[in-house]
């Protein structure tokens, strides 16, 4: 179902969920949970948004049934650790590439995905100051390196 324009802010989290449906269903589940919660704050009034969110909720309930025996799903404290470890693993990979001067699409995507997953961490509560800094740095780095490569410049 097409994403209504009012819910544009969650499109990348939903795409990350799709990319992880096979690779890591726990990540996919919490990306969709974040999208659901954020979507309801953005707009759950207009009919097309409500319709979209009802479909997303259907998907979440199905995923929960399928993954129900996974501790990361039925114990959110375990889920929190799972998402945080995954986000930081992506961040460290991109940061190592950056420090080694290896700039490419994969590392840009890893920085950006890490920042999206740090957004997702907020479903478990307030982000730590460290994660807020990591998220800001990752998003800035992804944008900066992407623009450098687009303009044929070497990132510093």
């Amino acid at each position: 179902m097409a994403l209504p324009a009012q819910l544009k802010a969650i499109q990348h989290h939903l795409r990350t969920a799709q990319e992880h449906d096979k690779r890591d269903p726990v990540v996919a589940y919490y990306c969709r949970l974040y999208a659901m919660q954020t979507g309801m704050k953005l707009d759950s009034k207009t009919p097309e948004c409500r319709k979209f969110l009802v479909k997303l909720m259907d998907q979440l309930e199905t995923m929960k049934k399928e993954l129900g025996d996974n501790d990361s799903i039925n114990q959110e404290v375990v889920g929190n650790a799972h998402i945080e470890n995954y986000a930081l693993k992506m961040f460290l990979y991109a940061d190592n590439e950056d420090r080694a001067g290896r700039f490419h699409k994969n590392m840009i995507k890893s920085f950006y995905s890490a920042s999206l997953l740090l957004d997702v961490l907020s479903v478990f509560g307030e982000l730590s100051e460290e994660n807020i800094q990591h998220r800001k740095y990752a998003r800035w780095k992804a944008t900066y390196i992407h623009n450098c490569l687009k303009n044929g410049e070497t990132p510093q």
């Binding site: 009919p47 409500r50 309930e61 039925n74």
Partner: peptide, 27 residues
């Protein structure tokens, strides 16, 4: 129709909130 539409919308919003809380075992 306006008021009916509004009450349908808020009923569906409430239902979504309840389903979300249930999904997270918060009810």
């Amino acid at each position: 129709t306006g008021s009916v539409g509004t009450s349908v919308a808020s009923a569906e919003q409430d239902e979504l909130s309840q389903r979300l809380a249930k999904l997270r075992d918060q009810i």
